[in-house]
């Protein structure tokens, strides 16, 4: 510094000016430009995100329309299957329905009892329950029983007979006693 011909006082002033410069730069980047850039970067990221959403939304809308068209048959079928089961607790409507069904098939005194109800393991059927019923028919003719079972299997697609026992009644040669274990799929209420 002495080579430049600067006095002590001048060196002090230069030091003070340098400190002022450093302070200015620090304040500028920390409190002004830094937050501004951060804010801008955040806005740019948000804009990219929203623009991506906007561009993908067109695809989503188109996909939904296509799926709606493709799923027409499935939705109709699903609604039809759901409509097979009336509202209310199954124990309230299933036994009378079975009794009436067999009565219409000329088989009297059919009694349906609920054995148990269990949920499905399949995740697709999380909203459905499997109801197991025991149907006792004290007396039935074999051919009438066969016809009734055929009609039941055709009329109730969600019902499947898992066990069947037909015993001849010794005192009535043409009649049989029948026990049917049937499983019915019913949506959860």
């Amino acid at each position: 510094m002495k080579a430049l011909g600067l006095s002590k006082d001048q060196i002090k002033k230069i030091g003070l000016s340098s400190m002022g410069m450093v302070f200015l730069v620090y304040v500028y980047f920390t409190f002004f430009l830094g937050p501004l850039n951060r804010s801008r970067n955040t806005m740019l990221a948000t804009m990219d995100d929203v623009q991506n959403k906007l561009s993908s939304s067109k695809g989503e809308l188109a996909k939904a329309v296509t799926l709606e068209n493709q799923a027409k048959a499935a939705t109709t079928r699903f609604a039809a299957l759901k409509a097979l089961n009336p509202e209310g607790a199954p124990i309230a409507w299933f036994p009378p329905r079975i009794k009436l069904f067999f009565a219409n098939e000329q088989i009297d005194k059919a009694v349906a009892r609920l054995e148990n109800s269990v949920p499905f393991k399949e995740p697709e059927l999380a909203d459905w329950m499997r109801y197991n019923w025991m149907i006792n028919i004290p007396q039935a003719d074999y051919s009438a029983l066969g016809k009734a079972i055929a009609d039941l299997e055709n009329a109730e697609p969600l019902l499947s007979i898992t066990k069947l026992a037909i015993r001849a009644l010794p005192e009535q040669g043409q009649s049989q006693a029948v026990d049917i274990v049937a499983t019915n799929f019913i949506p959860k209420k």
Partner: peptide, 22 residues
């Protein structure tokens, strides 16, 4: 819709797999 399609498919499988006693 996807859920309905899947559920209907599984239900259809059950219906198709039934053993008909008649």
């Amino acid at each position: 819709l996807t859920e309905i399609i899947k559920t209907t498919r599984v239900l259809e499988d059950y219906i198709e797999d039934r053993f008909f006693w008649a």
